[in-house]
Design a protein around this nucleic acid. Structure first.
Lengths: 118, 118
DNA sequence: CAGTATCCCTGATGATACTG
DNA sequence: CAGTATCATCAGGGATACTG
């Protein structure tokens, strides 16, 4: 690791990074917006089965506040609101990819087949 | 991303990877074991202020079950138990580093200074 | 030393209903 | 359409006490 972190600050740093993507629906939303997609509230609602309006709204607000998502309100009737990722939001991609890769190594790298779990 | 995942399976893949490191103390424990360190239960207890025996034990058990941590029991009196990372546990390092890097980019990349939050 | 066993409490999420 | 408001639920975690 090319950083000058101590164990403690590194752990804290990762923890605070994780806070941005923790939340039952954040990753699903993220993956729908990756690639520069611009989606309306109702698009996301339809794209994500099982999510409630409350949760969709709540997670989007947090992500907006955190600076991952941009919210664009069109002052029309009926209302229209677009969502897309910020530059920083897009920048999450490599990190998630690294996580994906790590997870995929589990079967490969585990010396002995441990307990199976979902 | 060099993978052949759909949005949905990618989100699920990352979610399941995240489950392995979710837990109030997992990352702190991880960072104490990175670098091949071998620590006893009491070492970790002392190294991690604020953790209770219940939590330390619980998190270690999960990590062991998940295949990230190896638990070595020495059949002595009094008992002695060593903990270290498995190969797969060590392999988490690059992913956490990517997360750290992403988090660190927040101030740099955010167009406008958004709401400040811990 | 290295844990278990209990009890409690809070925050995150879900279900449902209502609105500018 | 794009939300907000309320209420109910539940798992994760904390505090404390006990044990092979």
């Amino acid at each position: 690791m090319p950083h000058s972190y101590t164990r403690e600050t590194a752990a804290e740093g990762v923890e605070s990074a994780l806070k941005f993507i923790e939340g039952r629906w954040k990753l699903v939303i993220l993956f729908h917006l990756f690639g520069g997609h611009v989606l309306r509230f109702s698009d996301l609602e339809r794209a994500i089965p099982g999510i409630s309006q409350k949760m969709l709204s709540q997670q989007l607000r947090q992500m907006e506040k955190d600076g991952m998502v941009r919210r664009i309100v069109h002052p029309t009737v009926p209302p229209k609101v677009d969502y897309c990722l910020t530059e920083w939001g897009q920048a999450l991609c490599p990190a998630l990819d690294a996580l994906l890769t790590w997870g995929a190594q589990r079967e490969t790298m585990s010396a002995a087949a441990q307990t199976e779990k979902a």
